Amino acid sequence: MRLSAVPAILLVGLALSGCSRSGADDLRAGLTSKETTNSIVRPAAPVPANDVGEADTGQTAAHELAWAGPVPDQDRFETLTRTAAMPTQRPLEAIAPVEPAIMTNPGKRSRIYSQRFRDAKPINFGKITPRHHAVHGVDVSRWQADIDWATLRTQGANFAFIKATDGGDHLDPMFKTNWRKAKEAGIKRGAYHFFYWCRTAGEQADWFIRNVPKDPDALPPVIDVEYNGESKCKRRLSRATVLEKMQVFMDKLERHYGKRPIIYTAPDFYADNLTGEFKDYPFWLRSVAAHPSVRYPNREWVFWQYSGSGLSQGVDGKIDLNVFRGSKADWHNWVAGQSS
């Protein structure tokens, strides 16, 4: 059937209008990216959609997707964003003291549970194993689905790093629920951001700040920097550009939260970009086949992710396992030092 000219024009206009709104509609629908960290395997069963958790007050407006292509003069743009004054840098000793003094007035300290985790793929780490460390914890994202946080804590999750954001427009749909329930269970928790190399550092920092509450009792925010084969961004930036973008992101978070961000990374990315860099920042190192001293020679670290195949009551499927470097007293002192 032939259409008259006027109806045809109206139909074309409606079709174009629908296309122009698709990006914002997708974002409002809570679509998440295909970026994953470490060795988490996506389960075959459906994972929660982005309708969980409590809505953010005053943040219901649609977020426009930023252009993800190459940015002209990007290095100059990133450098210009670093003009604000930064807090005084903490010395390396304050990040992970080897023998910190016991606090004379430590205040209320949370109970530390011994770990009861199992591992689907146990590794022989040699003389110094994760079990030699007193304080264990986990990191989680939407792929762990609905977590029984109270049970997870009794299994040895004394701290938890919770996936919050990636790039400049993706929010983990379980973040709000996990953030709230972890605190209710008495677990010290912090939020992490998966960094995209095809997005500007400033917009990624703004997105994280927009979605992660400023909680004085939270652990420092985490920037997750690594390579990812599933990413649509195939650019390999120069070492200098990587360091510049990281610094812009971390400076902005430190100004907002008053805490020096933690750097999470993996061996290959570290070898290419981070060897000898950021000595005044706490590191969280992924090393699931050997002790960190083997994969990251001469690097001080605060957290060690030693497994991506952990098993625990309170969680269906696998979960990442971590340890804090130090004694129980070291942990209490370090946590107290992060209060803002």
Rank of each mutant, 00 (worst) to 15 (best):
W67H: 14
S110P: 04
E64P: 03
D172Y: 15
A185P: 00
I95V: 15
F77Y: 12
R131H: 07
P106Q: 14
P173T: 15
R153C: 01
I128D: 10
K121V: 08
E78Q: 12
Q155N: 06
R180P: 01
I187Y: 02
F117H: 04
V140T: 12
G107L: 08
K183A: 10
W149P: 01
R116L: 09
L171I: 14
Y192S: 02
L92P: 02
I162C: 02
G126W: 04
E64T: 11
D146Q: 13
F77P: 00
E99A: 08
P97I: 09
L80W: 03
D166Q: 12
D139A: 00
K183H: 05
R116D: 09
A164S: 08
H136T: 05
A66T: 08
Y113A: 13
R82C: 09
G186Y: 09
D119V: 11
D146P: 01
N178M: 04
D172I: 12
F175M: 02
Y113Q: 13
G156C: 08
P72G: 07
P100Y: 14
A191N: 13
T165G: 05
R109A: 10
E184H: 06
M174R: 13
Q89T: 09
A160V: 08
F125E: 10
F159A: 04
R189C: 14
P122T: 06
Q89N: 09
F159Y: 10
W67M: 10
K108P: 04
S114T: 13
T83I: 10
F161S: 00
P97E: 10
I147M: 03
I112C: 02
S110V: 03
A134D: 14
R131Q: 09
Q89R: 10
L92S: 13
